[in-house]
Amino acid sequence: MNGVHDMGGMHGFGKVVAEQDEPVFHADWEGRVLALMRAVLYTRAWNIDVFRDSQEQLPAPVYLTVSYYHRWLLGITRSALERGLVEQDELDAGRTLRPARPVERTMTPAEAGNAFIRGPFARTPQGDARFKPGDRVRTVNIHPAGHTRLPRYARDKEGVIAAIRGCHVFPDSKAAGKGDDPQWLYSVVFSGRELWGRQADPTLELSIEAFEPYLESV
C-alpha cells in the first residue's frame, strides 16, 4: 500500500540522530514484545508478511508517532484479534475468558533455539527464472492497497539485473493469505539519476530486491 511506512525519498523527517551507548532494549516490555513476536510466529497462526502488513495498516499518524516496539505490539494485537487468538474483552480484562483455538505448534523451552535463527524463505520454483544478470528491466507501476515490497520510489523505473537470489516466498501473496506463491528474486540496480532525476548524486547507484512479478522486460 502507498503508506507512510514506504519512506524512501520523503522529505521532512529531519536529521539522523544516533544514540550513544544505546541499550538493546530501552525498557523490559520492549524485549517481551520482540520475544512475543518470535514465539507467536512459531505457532504459524500468521507469518512475517502478515506481521509487516499489520503495521502498515495502522493509521498513518499512529505509525509515525508511536515507538518501534509499541508499533509491533499494535500489529501483533491486531493479528491476534483478527485470528481469534484473543478477544477484545479478554485484553480489557487482562485474562482469558474463553477456551483457546488450536494452533499448529507451540515452542517449548527445549526448542527455543529455533526462535533465534529464522528458517529459509527459499522455495521450489514454479518455473524458470525469466531474467538473468545484465538484463535491462523496468519495474511495474503498481499501487496495491495491500502489502507489497516494491517501494514507491522504485516503481516504473529502468534498471539492470545484478544478481538472482533464488526463488522465495512472495510477500504480496503471503500477506494476503494466498500462500507462498514462490517467485524468483533479483537484485535490481538503478542509477541515482533514474530514481531522482537531475538533482541526483551522480555517484549514486541503488539496488532493491525485486520479485519477478515486479519486473518487465525492456
Binding site: 483457546a100 523451552p109 527455543a112
Partner: peptide, 23 residues
C-alpha cells in the same frame, strides 16, 4: 504487553520461559 502475554500464555500459545530465553 502484560495482558497480551498473560492471555497468550494461559491459552498455551506461548511459554514465558521461552520468551525469557529469546530476550
Amino acid at each position: 504487553v502484560r495482558a497480551l502475554e498473560t492471555i497468550l500464555t494461559e491459552k498455551g500459545y506461548i511459554d514465558p520461559a521461552v520468551l525469557d530465553q529469546i530476550v
